[in-house]
Design a protein around this nucleic acid. Structure first.
Length: 365
RNA sequence: GGGGGGAUACCAAAGUGGCCAACUGGGGCAGACUGUAAAUCUGCUGGCGUACGCCUUCGGAGGUUCGAAUCCUCCUCCCCCCA
């Protein structure tokens, strides 16, 4: 196993790795109060999104607030995605050129232009501790020729991102750092080339993008393993957008240190609970009169305070407390999972523990 | 007492001779969701069958017709208006 334990230091605090970062796209971890993110879930770092925050509330408001930390009341580290994923997910509403990407807002259809330079400026204004280079997240499947062209363009955009980043200053008195992103779709030679390019930039951390976009898991692991073998061992590796609890443990085993995913929050809002014994669809009739705890093994307040029957009722009645409880539970579970992983890494029995956990995590309860 | 309207699947509600096992919505059941255009989307929802299909349904009973949820007769129940 290539699993490792590490620490990342920012001016908003230290992060132990492996870590899972709750996604807070629009400046909020959806359906979860910041006090619960901090205390009950005990997240160490959360995400924000350049594209969403730029559209709403906009840079003027964020700067008036004094940055995102002050705006949303989260005083621990924040990482912002660059909008590269929106190049992927909003494919129908954008056009990619060498200079940058023309977007249409999904909110009002208004037109905007993102260059790597501008995206750096936006992330300076948001004030994230870790900012991401502007990339293109390619879809799956992706033709080899397009994957290569896109990867090469992402590399050129990276150098422009770095130049802009290095020639500008933080706006709120604390330092920021930038992570470049490996691309190359599911092609080994492209992934290797990209990983070498990204490694050569010598930044404080590196990310792997363009995975978990629909490719088979074996391909995702194969690419992750290959890239981790090339990225420097003494810098954190961030696998963007991953994933299921099993995905996370398998990827930790391959040498990944940082994860983010909408799954615990989005799926939670839709009634799916992840637990150490398997997956629960709390909307299912079978939980109707199950008055046992939401998660008997869970460590968060909601796990022991509420019953499955009650949580099912909340979903059936479309009460907003349902998605809130499920989101808190899932995030607390994800954070518990990575903390456990750390302990087992330190104890030297990670691989054994991981192998015993993965089948359970995928059970359907 | 007089006059009028109505009864369709779990609920509401279309359908007024064949294209109807029956639109649509709700409810119910199940599924999907991986750097969040998502507290969203999809499927099923009379019975049996994997399926071609077969069987039983539109308040009840009878009738007209090649053919009825739709037309006729009687019955039962509900609602509204006037006394």
């Amino acid at each position: 196993s290539s699993a490792r334990y590490g620490r990342i230091t920012t001016e908003h605090g230290e992060i132990e790795t492996p870590i899972f970062m709750p996604v807070g796209t629009a400046g909020t971890v959806k359906a979860v109060h910041i006090r619960d993110v901090k205390q009950d879930i005990n997240a160490e770092i959360i995400l924000g999104n350049t594209y969403h925050l730029y559209l709403r509330p906009g840079l003027d408001i964020l700067e008036q607030a004094g940055g995102l930390h002050k705006f949303n009341g989260w005083d621990r580290p924040i990482l912002t995605d660059s909008g590269g994923y929106q190049v992927h997910s909003l494919a129908a509403m954008r056009k990619i050129e060498e200079k940058g990407v023309n977007f249409q807002s999904h909110i009002d259809g208004s037109r905007h232009f993102y260059s790597p330079e501008y995206v750096m400026d936006i992330q300076r204004s948001i004030g994230a501790d870790i900012i991401m280079a502007f990339d293109e997240c390619t879809p799956y499947p992706c033709e080899y020729d397009y994957a290569r062209e896109s990867m090469e363009r992402t590399h050129r955009w990276l150098d422009r991102s770095l130049q802009q980043f290095d020639s500008t200053e933080p706006k709120y008195g604390y330092s920021q750092t930038i992570f470049p992103i490996v691309q190359g779709s599911v092609y080994k030679d492209l992934r290797a080339k990209s990983a070498e390019y990204i490694a050569s930039r010598g930044r404080e951390g590196n990310a792997i993008g363009g995975l978990s976009v629909g490719e088979p898991h074996e391909m995702m692991y194969e690419m992750t393993e290959l890239v981790c073998g090339i990225l420097p061992a003494d810098k954190p590796r961030y696998l963007m957008g991953v994933g299921t609890p099993a995905n996370i443990l398998e990827s930790i085993a391959l040498g990944v240190d940082m994860f983010d995913c909408v799954m615990p929050t989005r799926n939670g809002r839709n009634g799916m609970l992840f637990t150490s014994e398997g997956i629960i669809n709390i909307k299912n009739k079978k939980w109707e009169n199950d008055f046992s705890a939401v998660d008997p093994n869970g460590i968060s307040f909601v796990d022991s305070h509420y019953s499955r029957a009650y949580l099912r009722h909340l979903f059936a009645a479309r009460e907003s407390l349902g998605p809130m409880i499920a989101s808190i539970h899932n995030l607390a579970f994800y954070l518990w999972l990575v903390r456990e992983a750390r302990e087992h890494i330190k104890n030297g029995d990670f691989a054994q523990w991981k192998n015993s956990m993965v089948p359970k995590l995928q059970n359907r309860l």
